[in-house]
Deep mutational scan, measured.
Amino acid sequence: MSIQHFRVALIPFFAAFCLPVFAHPETLVKVKDAEDQLGARVGYIELDLNSGKILESFRPEERFPMMSTFKVLLCGAVLSRVDAGQEQLGRRIHYSQNDLVEYSPVTEKHLTDGMTVRELCSAAITMSDNTAANLLLTTIGGPKELTAFLHNMGDHVTRLDRWEPELNEAIPNDERDTTMPAAMATTLRKLLTGELLTLASRQQLIDWMEADKVAGPLLRSALPAGWFIADKSGAGERGSRGIIAALGPDGKPSRIVVIYTTGSQATMDERNRQIAEIGASLIKHW
């Protein structure tokens, strides 16, 4: 067993022997301040990774656009098919120029040779490549099948209805392509620590998230040296922004954090800054 596999296998073990965790309302004060600064709703939840206990939450059962955070769930569904012998990570998928959609920095470079399922998941999570996500959605049967996968996990809230990039439209009061912070946090925890996926697939999923290259201005910008984070960000229309993450000190994750916002007129930089400040408060009061 590799060191990384050992780390993920012992996530519940280490967490069980940690000192009790206590909620700190100071972080919620910052979440509410972010709402004021952005002029928009902000949803927040913080779960203990081992027990699933909610440590703090704000608007945990209000719907927010998922945006690209759905790509972690998508690759979880792909990995479940791999575990069941219905898919192979090494299978190569070929596609054409007509398949390319807006923001496809990886797939646009491989029109000639195609990409493997493993490479597509890596591109979808680490670079948020939209064509990679659409190609992977095709392998599982489309958005409705991802929703069905989530329902089978016990998540009857999260739903995907459309493809990239239309799913980022974020129309107010439109339930399409949305989740709730509580539902997303619980589902992410199941994917990373539950028995739904094999140990190898859980490790692969967290490795992809740990290698995320496009979430630097968010929670990662607030992390002290030595902290662990595996995350996936999302951005959408109407001032929408979000991030889902597993993080913790001492090089291992111990909490799940989900943050979503929508309806702001603020710039992307300002949305990023507010999420980073929430992260800084979380870490300060850990």
Rank of each mutant, 00 (worst) to 15 (best):
M268G: 15
L191F: 13
R271F: 15
T187G: 09
A276V: 14
L89G: 01
S281G: 11
L205Y: 02
Q88C: 01
I206G: 06
E195M: 00
W286L: 07
T198G: 06
D250A: 09
H156D: 07
K30H: 15
T267S: 08
I125H: 05
E119V: 04
E35H: 04
A225Q: 14
L28M: 05
M127Q: 15
Q265K: 10
P181T: 03
A211E: 06
T116V: 02
S68L: 07
W208P: 05
A77N: 11
G114T: 12
G242H: 02
A132V: 04
Q97I: 01
I125D: 09
P249F: 10
G39L: 12
G279R: 11
A225P: 08
R202P: 02
D231I: 14
E166N: 07
T261Q: 10
L55E: 06
L135F: 04
L38Y: 00
M115D: 11
V29C: 06
L38I: 10
T178L: 12
L191A: 12
W163V: 12
I278Q: 14
L223A: 06
H151V: 06
E87R: 06
L79R: 01
T131F: 02
I93L: 04
P217N: 14
A222G: 15
R91K: 08
L47N: 01
Q274K: 07
A276I: 11
L135G: 02
F228E: 15
L73P: 07
T198S: 05
A200V: 06
K213Y: 14
L196D: 06
L146A: 02
A276L: 12
H285V: 01
A148Q: 08
T126Q: 08
G142V: 00
E164S: 11
G76I: 10
V257D: 15
F149G: 03
G279K: 14
G141F: 03
S68N: 11
E35L: 11
D113P: 03
E237M: 04
R81P: 06
M209V: 12
H151E: 02
A182C: 08
S57N: 04
T179S: 15
L197V: 03
P217C: 10
L79K: 02
L146H: 01
T187W: 00
M66I: 13
D129V: 01
E237I: 00
C75M: 00
G90W: 11
A84I: 03
G239F: 04
E175L: 06
T27G: 10
R59G: 04
D231R: 10
E119K: 01
V42K: 14
R63Y: 11
A280L: 13
P25T: 08
E166Y: 05
D155P: 07
E166A: 12
T69L: 13
D83S: 02
R92D: 12
D212P: 15
L89M: 09
G279E: 15
L111A: 09
A124M: 06
A133E: 01
P25S: 05
K32N: 11
R81Q: 07
L73R: 01
Q203P: 02
K144Q: 03
F58K: 03
D231F: 10
L219S: 13
K284C: 03
D113V: 01
R176E: 00
T186H: 08
R59T: 04
I275Q: 06
W286V: 05
D212T: 14
A222Q: 15
A225I: 08
V157C: 09
L38S: 01
E62Y: 09
P143S: 07
R41H: 12
L247I: 11
A246L: 09
M127S: 12
T198R: 00
D177K: 11
Y103H: 10
E108T: 06
G216A: 12
V157H: 14
R63T: 08
W227Y: 08
L28W: 13
E102N: 02
K53G: 05
G90S: 07
